[in-house]
Amino acid sequence: MPEPVVAVEDLRKEFPVPGAPGLVAVDDVSFELERGESLAVIGESGSGKTTLARMLVGLETPTAGRIEIDGEDRSRPGRRARERLERGRRIQLVFQNPYSSLDRRQPARACIAEMLDLHFGLSPDERDARVRELCEQVGLDERQAGALPRALSGGQRQRVAIARALAVRPQVLVLDEAVASLDVSIQAQILNLLADIRAQEDISYIVVSHDLAVVRQISDKGFVMEHGRVVERGSTVDLLDAPQHPYTQLLRRSVPGPGWTPQRRQRGVHA
């Protein structure tokens, strides 16, 4: 059995609350991600899924637990720039809103080039060739590659963000609701693109999403989080076709589809 590319053990994140016990955002979460696999982290707001994603890429420090990426201990964010860059070459994050995660004064091409300069000592020619290659891979044309984020549509911006993440040839791509704010027709393009990338590259995905249809489309296995805890895990097919935990069942029932009508859980609920 080859070793997993990501191994997370009893990961916990507590945020301090003045004058009260800490808020436990992530509560003893463990999982393994094999090479080439796509894992879904399913949850609604407040489930802790985004905090988990941020700890994986080193944007948050875990309160307890262990993160191993590509065989190295990455439980804490790197203290030195070199450590942070090393981690960055292994795991990259694509955010939900590409508009706020891109520099509004930087054209797409420059944004990708900056990433390459930061990580690799390429000659200008090599670098430009790689930028062209990346733009082509994500489907950005010449005009779009030279455009500022505001001149691009939501889908095109997300392509830029994906190209920037792919620039370092990461082993793991964390997609935090990366297609959630896109129009349906554009969402389909990006989901196909992500499938193509996984077929071409030696890359694994961690798909953080509330959208079970998206989860079905691009993950092999996954787990469901509620209030920071994993309530159910399994293959994507099992999770969606035969959910066992009441919360997973509720999530599944709440997804509109042919013949679906909205349901009320009970009369009288709490804030």
Binding site: S185, Q187, A188, L191, V214, R216, Q217, L240, V255
Partner: peptide, 13 residues
């Protein structure tokens, strides 16, 4: 639209 009840090989974007 991706479907919750079945995965398609490729979405018809």
């Amino acid at each position: 639209r991706p479907r919750v009840d079945a995965r398609s090989d490729r979405l018809e974007a």
